[in-house]
Every structure is written in structure tokens, then in C-alpha cells.
Design a binder for these strands. Structure first.
Length: 879
DNA sequence: CACCTAGTACTTTTT
DNA sequence: GTACTAGGTG
């Protein structure tokens, strides 16, 4: 990857003196036109050659958006004679910026290096690092990520003796603070506007949080943008310099900008008005992060002289895929009407698979991948159109869904890469090492110091940490000049009251280590500094003694060391700043490598802007996708739909959609997603067409076709008894409760009560299933968590309010074996139809041999899914 | 007082 | 699967 450039840097005198193409003769100019415009269609050309004034490019999915921006920049430089350092391009991820620079480099060579490119966050960080003093910001500020933010809030909660759950959950408080900040509110304004108890609570935290970050010399992600804007608004001299510097502005993924970002761009464009924004309202999927779709819908109102160029020819996908995408997104109300077209007529039908559970779904996906890539791996030379693994992606709504797929890929030996989830720079050991660097750079960064106390453990525990923080409090108040580190030093010398001699000793040797590292800083490279950090901190020794897991963590630290090597030409402070910024602002997608021979696992959000030949979208059930939090909110539902549109349009040739009727834990089953019903049926090929799951009501839930009919028939999903496609059989919370009550009264009558474990696994039953249930069973095992209560369960059954007790057992019961049959012999196969004396008819889902018995999991028509011991339960196999 | 272990509750999306 | 917590141990 290319060296991190400072996009706010002014060009060197040598670069400044470089001849521009202004002096080109007529024939050379024609040649340039030819080269830059030839690969473009009519609309793209218009976008590229319209260089003066505001320009809105409405770029549909796959319409050559990136191509337009790169060619436009090339055009500006080579045809219009604009100096490369006069051009700025803002992208959504650092990866996109790097890619754009690479493409530009191929077109125009070295001068591509002088074009400023980056994300809003990275550009603001650079500007603030350079000019932040003009608005009173410290030079060495630290960027706080979500984890750091949460630690700050948790500190408050500890001080106040409040729980980190419920309405004072850090992520909840931070979300509210972030939303207010993006609406341009200060903590004081929040307090003024607070009405409810919770709003007042949040506002108070917001005020404290802002003050604390100031003391820590820290900026969170929102602050980067906010302060970046303030810099342009309140430091006129600085603002004018940037306005003069960047004469041509480009903003990619404009539909995902928020109000602060919009204002920032407007400030920069104020003088010359040369602003080109590129976006697609149908792909706006970040409103929860403050993105304001009005930025794109109202562009023409805000810039009355704006040219608008729609790009509607798609170069990526087949017509089938585009029709499916259009079928879905056209159900949205507030959108600019448009329809993509392609020259790639027809194309394979879209495959749909209704799975029983996530494992089944994953297995099917893996099987299809194996078939599609068989020719590549050499197993089936006659396979049509072999797809290489890096042309395949599996998309899902939530990161948690990757697990089942991962397991299946692993056991099949298919190589894969996961984007997102826990990323490299969020791994514990990496954050630990980075915390040392942060502490060295910013002596006020209390959060970083508190992290290194425990990395590795060194006899400084929670009590000591609290006392140190308390000691730092009055010190700050007395004089701003005192840093947290200085308080730490005093404590190391035993000068802080309440710190035990033992802790004081530990602090003393920590302080020695820090000082030795400080002394090194001026004379070594960043990489060498990291080596010393590994040694002084004890991290190296710690992981060396930790076995295989430690080995992996150590390997990650070495990888971090390798990253640091790229900054070896910079001064230690500059290297430190840029490295720390890099680790903090590294995005999910930045870890994606399109060239390695691996299947990609990625969330729908992170997949935006990427493409693959063969795409799987998994987990298409009501409640998952669309997510349960969107079920009763029209606007959120439209965003889910756009997300689906984004997912579908990632596919170039082949698209597969799948869902699992049974999902994890007790939140019920998912009916097939409404989005499946919104795709014209003739485009779909149901893979398990002969399966009841494809058809009408099944024991597991409402089948694909039946759900489809439900949506098409206009059954309301907002009112009445539930979601169309809601499962008719097992697992509806309401039903299970009812069944339990019946079982309870039956048991009370028969007097044969037993107390099952709350996890539903009976240790040593002396009967084939529970006969009755003890009163203890009616004790709640938990309460409905806030996130599960959306007014409607995933199953379509009404859910209870948060806090409602959950009674055991809602989940399948496992009845462990007590008597042996013929050991090692399996009697039941998946799919067998069986009859049970009490539960009636059922279908075998899985069966597993244990030491003494066979455990058969059966889905019963009326009583849900149960796991029974074959030796005990009287099961009759039918047909 | 620090640290380890086992058990429990919790999972939207991310710069 | 992980992040937190409680409770035991050194």
C-alpha cells in the first residue's frame, strides 16, 4: 500500500515549479481529450467536462461513479491545466481514497500524489493537527474511538455508583450524545432542551463528557468533524488558506454525509463554488450515523445554479439483478424516480433457498460455492463459468451472523476473509501496545494510561486506578498545567494519599519504564520505539509465556511493528501522530483485499462500493433483515430496503438469497423477508422447490410462497395479529407460554413434578420427557432485554415490554440418555418422519450419537422442537 | 488488594 | 463468542 501522504501538505517548491498542461498545443490537447473521454459514455463525459460551478452527479449503482471522479480529476489536471494540489476528493473510506489515487496514478502518473484525498475524518484530523491551535486545540490531541469513549462514561458511572446497564448503558448514552452533536447541539443546549428524566440524565453526562475530553486532550469521531467545521468558521485566515488551496472539490458517497460534513464542504466551497458531489439517494444507508438524505435531495435547492447529471447505465450487473434491485427499492416513497439499465440482458435467475436453521443455510451456501468454483479447484472440469473465490462474497445484516457461515467454510476447507467484526486495530494486544504510544504522545490521555496498567497486569488494580483518578481531579482544577502523568509520577514517589506502598512501588517502576521510553523518543524511529515498548511494557515477556494464544497475539504485535516501519522517514512525533491517526481512523473496509483467492464475508453496510461476480445475501428473514428495529418505523424500513438494494446491486452475474426459518435463541422464528416478496417471481429460482418450506404453511413456519402470497395480498404487518408469513407452528413465544401453563397444571394434577434446569437440559430424567413442571419453573430466568422489544417479535407474535419476565423453557429441551441401546448405531436420519405418543407427528432435524445413546432433535407440529433420547422416548419412524 | 475463574447476559449497521 | 460480574485465592 502506498505511503500515507499528508493531503493537507503544500507541494514542495519543485512540484510547484512543475509545468502544467496549460501550455499544451492543440494536437496534444486533442490527444488528452481522446484518452480521458474515450472510455466514457455520454452522461459520464458531461460529468467529467462540467468543471466550473456546482455539479450533482446522480450515480446509480455500478454506473461508473469512481471512474467519473478519477477521469474528472485527470481532465482538470491535463485538459484544464489545474494544478493537482488544487484538487480535493473526499471519500467514504481510506480504502476508497487509496484506490482512487491508484487509478489516477495509472492515468496521469506521479502528479496523482499531489491531489488531496481522504475521508472527512482523516482530512479534519490533519487540518486540526496542523492548524487546530488557531481555535485553541492542543497539537498532540488523541483521537478516541468507541471503546475509549465508553471507558470515559464508565468512569462517570463508577464515580456515581450507577450500573453500566439499562438506561445508563454507555453505548446508549454515547449514542444520544453523538446524535445531539450531529444536530449541532452543545451540552448546554441539550440541558436546556431536556424534558424527560432520561434526556436530563444524558445531557448531564454530555456536559461532563465534553469537559473530560477537553481535559484529556482528546477528540472523538464527532469532534473531529465538529472542530474541523469550527476551524473553517472561526479561524478566517486559516479558512481562507484552505479555500484558496482547494479550488476543485469532490465528494463521493454524498448521500451518506451528515449536516456537519455538509456545512464543512459548503465552507470550503464558499469562494469558488466548484463543488462536485456524487451520490445515489437509493444507497443512503447511514442515517443512524447522522447522514441526512436531504443533503442529496435538496442539493439543487441549496445550489440553484447546479448542473445535474444522472448516470443510469449500469456496467456491473445483469438485467435480472437490476430488475430484482428495482423491484425492491421501488417500494420506497421518498426517492428520486429512476431506473438503471444495462446492456447485459437476461442473466441467471436469482436462486432462493429456504433453510431450516442458520447451519443448514450456511451448508447450502458452501455447497453452492464449491459447485461454482469446482472448475477452479479442479474437481469438475465441466462446471460452467467457474468463479474464483475472490469473486464471491457472502453478505449479512449483522456481524454475529458470520459465525455459522465461517464454521461451514472452515470445515469445507474453503478460504475466506472476514471484513469487520473485530478488526485488527481493535484487538486487545494491539490496542494495548497502541495505548503505550498514546500515553507517550499525550501525557493527559488518562484512558491510555489506565489501559497500560493492565497491559500486562502489574499489580495496579481498580482501587489504585480510582484513587489516581481522584487525585488527578483537584490537580487539574488547581492548574491546567498539571497532567495526569505528573500525578502518576507523584504517586510513584508515594506522594499520593491512599495509594498503598505496594501499588506505589508498582507505579514507580512503571514510571521508570515510561521515562526510559520518553528518553528514547527523540533518537529512534517509530519501529524501534515500538520494540522498546514491547520490552519495557512487559508485553513481549507476557505473551511469550502464554502458549499458543500468546503466540498469535505476539504475531499481531509484530504485524503492528511492520506497519510502523512505513513511517521510518518521519520525525518520531510526526510518525507517532500519523501512525496513531491511522490506527484510529482505519475503517472496516480498509482491511479488504480484493486480490487474494478467498471468499469474502462482509456486512451489507461494509459492502457498499464493492462488487463480486457471485453474491450471497443470507439471513433474509423478517426481524433480521429487515431488522426488528425497523419493523414499526416507516423511515427505518425504507433504509433497510435501500440496504437490500445495495446488497443486490453488489452482484455482477449471480445472486443467491437465503433465509433460515429457525433462528438462534428465544426470539422466535423468522418468516421469509418481505424483500423476497418484492422481487418479481419470474426472476427467482427456488432451490428447494420440492421442500415444504418453499410452499405453504409448514411445521416450521410459513413457507416462502405462502409468505409471498401474504405480502402480495396486502396483509398488514403493522396492525393486527402479526407479520404475514409468521410461522404457524412451533416457537411462538405466546404459544410456548400457553403450553407451559398447560403442562404445569397437568403436572400439578399428576403430582409427578420435576425441576428441570433453566437451560432446558435435564440431567438424569427417569422418564422420556417432562411430565409436569414444578412451580419453580414459573420463576423468570431473565427479562426481555430492551433491544428485543419492538412491539412485534420476529415471529410476528406480539412481544412483551422490556423487563417482562422470560419463563423457562422457551427453547428446545434436551433429554439426556440414561440407558444404552446398541452403542454407536444411529437409528434416525434427518428428515425422518416420526410419531411420538405425546407430541404427535414430527420431523427429525438432527440426530447425534453420544456415548450411551442417540439424541434426536425433532420438530413437532404442535409442540415445538425437542431433543429426546432415542432409548427412552418411544419414537415410531413412519414411511 | 490484585488477579483468576466460572457463570451470566447480551448481539444493527461504523467513520 | 464476548464482556462483564461475583466470588474465591494468594
Amino acid at each position: 500500500m502506498n505511503l500515507p501522504l499528508d493531503p493537507t501538505d503544500d507541494p514542495s517548491p519543485a512540484q510547484r515549479a512543475a509545468p502544467t498542461q496549460n501550455t499544451l498545443g492543440e494536437s496534444a490537447r486533442t490527444a488528452v481529450e481522446e484518452r480521458i473521454l474515450a472510455p466514457l459514455n455520454e452522461a459520464q463525459r458531461r460529468a467529467v467536462t462540467t468543471t466550473a460551478g456546482p455539479l450533482l452527479v446522480l450515480a446509480g449503482a455500478g454506473s461508473g461513479k469512481t471512474r467519473v471522479i478519477t477521469h474528472r480529476i485527470a481532465w482538470l489536471i491535463q485538459h484544464e491545466g489545474v494544478a493537482p494540489w488544487k484538487i480535493l476528493a473526499v471519500t467514504f473510506t481510506n480504502k476508497a481514497a487509496a484506490e482512487m489515487r491508484d487509478r489516477l496514478h495509472e492515468m496521469i502518473g506521479e502528479s496523482a500524489r499531489d491531489v488531496a484525498m481522504g475521508t472527512f475524518h482523516s482530512l479534519c484530523a490533519r487540518m486540526l493537527r496542523r492548524d487546530g491551535e488557531a481555535i485553541g486545540l492542543p497539537k498532540g490531541f488523541t483521537i478516541y474511538d468507541a471503546d475509549d469513549q465508553a471507558r470515559v462514561i464508565k468512569g462517570f458511572l463508577k464515580e456515581d455508583d450507577l450500573p453500566a446497564t439499562g438506561e445508563t448503558k454507555p453505548s446508549l448514552i454515547l449514542g444520544a450524545i453523538s446524535r445531539a452533536k450531529n444536530d449541532g447541539l452543545t451540552a448546554e443546549q441539550m440541558e436546556d432542551r431536556a424534558i424527560t428524566h432520561h434526556e436530563r440524565l444524558v445531557a448531564r453526562f454530555a456536559r461532563r463528557y465534553a469537559a473530560e475530553l477537553k481535559r484529556l486532550d482528546a477528540l472523538d469521531f464527532d469532534d473531529l468533524l465538529l472542530e474541523g467545521l469550527r476551524l473553517l468558521q472561526e479561524a478566517p485566515a486559516v479558512a481562507d488558506r484552505y479555500r484558496a488551496k482547494w479550488e476543485y472539490l469532490h465528494v463521493d458517497e454524498y448521500q451518506d454525509t451528515n449536516r456537519i460534513q455538509y456545512n464543512w464542504v459548503r465552507e470550503l466551497a464558499a469562494k469558488h463554488g466548484n463543488l462536485c458531489v456524487v451520490g445515489d439517494d437509493d444507497q443512503s444507508i447511514y442515517s443512524w450515523r447522522g447522514a441526512d438524505i436531504r443533503n442529496i435531495l435538496d442539493f439543487e435547492r441549496d445550489w440553484p445554479t447546479a448542473e445535474v447529471v444522472p448516470l443510469e447505465q449500469n456496467y456491473r450487473s445483469t438485467q435480472t439483478i437490476l430488475d430484482a434491485a428495482h423491484g425492491v427499492v421501488s417500494n420506497n416513497q421518498g426517492r428520486k424516480k429512476k431506473k438503471l439499465w444495462t446492456e447485459l440482458e437476461g442473466g441467471d435467475q436469482i436462486t432462493v433457498y429456504g433453510a431450516f436453521d442458520p447451519e443448514d443455510e450456511a451448508a447450502w451456501i458452501v455447497r453452492r460455492i464449491e459447485e461454482a468454483s469446482a472448475a477452479v479447484t479442479g474437481r469438475r472440469a465441466d462446471a460452467p463459468e467457474p468463479v474464483s473465490l475472490n469473486g464471491i462474497a457472502i453478505l449479512y445484516r449483522t456481524n454475529a451472523q458470520s459465525r455459522a457461515i465461517e464454521v461451514a467454510l472452515k470445515s469445507a476447507g474453503v478460504a475466506y476473509q472476514i471484513i469487520g467484526g473485530i478488526r485488527f486495530y481493535e484487538r486487545r494486544e494491539v490496542k494495548d501496545a497502541v495505548a503505550w504510544l498514546r500515553a507517550l504522545r499525550n501525557p493527559r490521555d488518562r484512558i491510555a494510561f489506565e489501559r497500560i496498567y493492565d497491559a500486562p497486569p502489574r499489580g495496579i488494580g481498580e482501587k489504585t486506578i480510582r484513587r489516581l483518578a481522584a487525585a488527578a481531579q483537584p490537580a487539574y482544577a488547581a492548574t491546567e498545567a498539571i497532567t495526569y502523568e505528573q500525578v502518576l509520577y507523584s504517586a510513584g514517589r508515594g506522594e499520593v494519599a491512599g495509594i498503598t506502598p505496594r501499588a506505589s512501588n508498582a507505579l514507580g517502576s512503571l514510571v521508570d519504564s515510561i521515562q526510559r521510553l520518553r528518553d528514547l523518543m527523540s533518537s529512534v524511529t517509530l519501529g524501534e520505539l515500538l520494540d522498546s515498548v514491547f520490552r519495557e511494557s512487559g508485553l513481549r515477556a507476557f505473551y511469550a509465556s502464554e502458549g499458543p494464544e500468546g503466540e498469535e497475539r505476539w504475531a499481531n504485535l509484530l504485524e503492528l511493528r511492520g506497519d510502523a516501519e512505513r513511517y521510518k522517514d518521519l520525525s518520531t512525533i510526526d510518525a507517532l501522530d500519523q501512525f496513531l491517526e491511522f490506527t484510529a481512523l482505519q475503517s472496516d473496509q480498509d482491511g479488504f483485499d480484493a486480490d487474494v483467492e478467498r471468499v469474502t464475508l462482509i456486512t451489507l453496510h461494509a459492502a457498499k462500493g464493492l462488487e463480486w461476480s457471485m453474491v450471497f445475501i443470507s439471513g433474509l428473514t423478517e426481524g433480521l433483515f429487515p431488522h426488528s428495529r425497523a419493523l414499526d418505523d416507516q423511515e427505518q424500513m425504507e433504509e433497510e430496503r435501500r440496504l437490500c438494494y445495495v446488497g443486490i446491486t453488489r452482484a455482477k452475474r449471480r445472486l443467491s438469497l437465503s433465509y433460515a426459518l429457525r433462528r438462534g435463541w428465544g426470539d422466535g422464528d423468522g418468516a421469509p423477508s418481505r424483500f423476497l416478496a418484492e422481487i418479481p417471481e419470474e426472476l427467482l429460482d427456488v432451490a428447494n422447490d420440492d421442500d415444504p418450506r418453499a410452499d405453504g404453511e409448514t411445521r416450521f413456519g410459513r413457507g416462502f410462497r405462502s409468505a409471498r402470497a401474504g405480502f402480495a395480498g396486502g396483509e398488514s404487518w403493522r396492525e393486527g395479529s402479526g407479520t404475514p408469513g409468521a410461522p404457524s407452528g412451533a416457537f411462538r413465544p405466546g404459544r410456548d407460554l400457553e403450553a407451559r401453563r398447560r403442562a404445569y397444571s397437568a403436572g400439578a394434577r399428576s403430582g409427578s413434578l420435576r425441576v428441570p434446569d433453566t437451560d432446558g437440559i435435564d440431567e438424569a430424567p427417569d422418564d422420556d420427557e417432562f411430565i409436569g413442571e414444578a412451580p419453580e419453573l414459573m420463576q423468570p430466568v431473565g427479562r426481555i432485554p430492551p433491544w428485543a422489544a419492538t412491539g412485534r417479535g420476529a415471529a410476528g407474535a406480539p412481544t412483551q415490554a422490556p423487563g417482562t419476565p422470560i419463563l423457562p423453557p422457551l427453547r428446545p429441551r434436551t433429554v439426556a440418555p440414561t440407558r444404552a441401546r446398541i452403542p454407536g448405531e444411529r437409528y434416525f436420519r434427518d428428515g425422518d418422519r416420526v410419531l411420538h405418543a405425546t407430541f404427535g407427528e414430527g420431523i427429525v432435524v438432527t440426530s447425534k450419537l453420544t456415548r450411551h445413546d442417540e439424541e434426536v432433535t425433532i420438530a413437532f407440529a404442535g409442540s415445538g422442537v425437542k431433543t429426546l433420547a432415542a432409548s427412552i422416548a418411544n419414537l415410531e419412524v413412519q414411511g
